[in-house]
Design a protein around this nucleic acid. Sequence first.
DNA 1: TCTGGGGTCCTAGGACCC
DNA 2: TCTGGGGTCCTAGGACCC
Length: 420
Amino acid sequence: MYNKKQWILHIDGDGFFAYCEIARFPHLHGKPVVVGEERGIAMAMTYEAKRLGITRGMPMFKIREQFPGVTILTSHFELYDHYAVKLCTLLEADVSVLEKYSIDECFALVYLPKDWSKNQVYIWLAMLKKKIQKQIGLTYSFGMARTKVLAKIASKYQKPDGATVVMIEDEKELLQKTSIESVWGIGWRLSRRFQTLRVTTAYEFSQWPEQRVMDSFNAPVQELWHEMNGRNRFEVSNDRNQSKSLQATRSFVPASVDPSYIAAELLHNADVVFVRMRKQKLFTNGVSIYIKTTDQKYSGVAIPLPRYTNNVLDVTTIIREQVVALLQKGIRYKATGITVLNLRKDVHVQEDLFGEQKASTEEGKLMDTIDAIRRRYGQTSVTVLSTMPSNKYRLQKSIARQTTDKYIYGLPLPYLGEVQ
DNA sequence: TCTGGGGTCCTAGGACCC
DNA sequence: TCTGGGGTCCTAGGACCC
């Protein structure tokens, strides 16, 4: 490896969800398109829409009102995931370590000859880029630098369809042209702090003396500072794939004071997250639940479980009890959520003397059966009894949507009865 | 129960990301 | 500054122990 130099490559999908949709609906090519209808806010958009002034998070009613010519679409994660998998498969051949960071982004470690000029690196990158875009049919922006933070800034430097190689001697200029609040890891809280400190560019902060950084900020910002200065603090790693936790949350309209309705919402979320857990063959030994009021106040509780499980029936009773205990009289709630924690694979469940294990296995078989039916006939074909009130209500909305989006949602299933 | 000082472990909440 | 769902990591403070 003496004659090789290590690079960190960052690849970032351009308006990813929006262009995935356009790949399916070519007649929308070149038009302003926004994705996120079902959530009521813009999640992604084409560059034509960006040019009109539409930004991430903008409410859909506002977009409809101000930009009537814009096409608004619902999102389809299975489709985007399909492209994500394809990207990883292609990249694996050309890089040493590949880290999938999110559905439309990844980092990679690349080793190239030490004596290559910047131009030679660009040529290598251009070939990789061409190959990927030809095979996938979407554009990505590429950045290469010494550290993850610098590579991330680099990929954003020219967007869309960009490629930026940052040699050591280019880092100063790159950081000078980058505002501190656009650096990965600086959110609005830290942005405000930097404002009061009169720091505006990433470069200004990178020039702070180490002692001042240590005295003024906590660990995450200290790491950022090192990364900006070319010292690797964030590893590129491929074993981040296994989830440590999973969650399912959902808001509902109108807000409710009804304990049984709120409990049903939460149990529906529990059902959803346990299905995902079983799909990934994971087990949990603790869940945490929360409810959210109309004025954005959260209350929640962590529930440790006596043993690892991926059977939702092991938690329904305790969840119902706990959520009812959390509710405050007269307060209206608009969302619930559940997180399953400490996920593990291949848990050896211990036999217990009194046949409890047997009972649990029987239930396990029941869940396998339910999963199989759902795979075949759709998620709504079988319902955990306790979530019924919530589902009945939801069904009305999904039928209403059917008329505009008939490609996406399967036929509504008749209500067949209840599984005891 | 407070009577000290010190260590570890756990958890809730905050901040950030896409 | 909540507009929305799914994640990770860090840290202060409490519980518990000696």
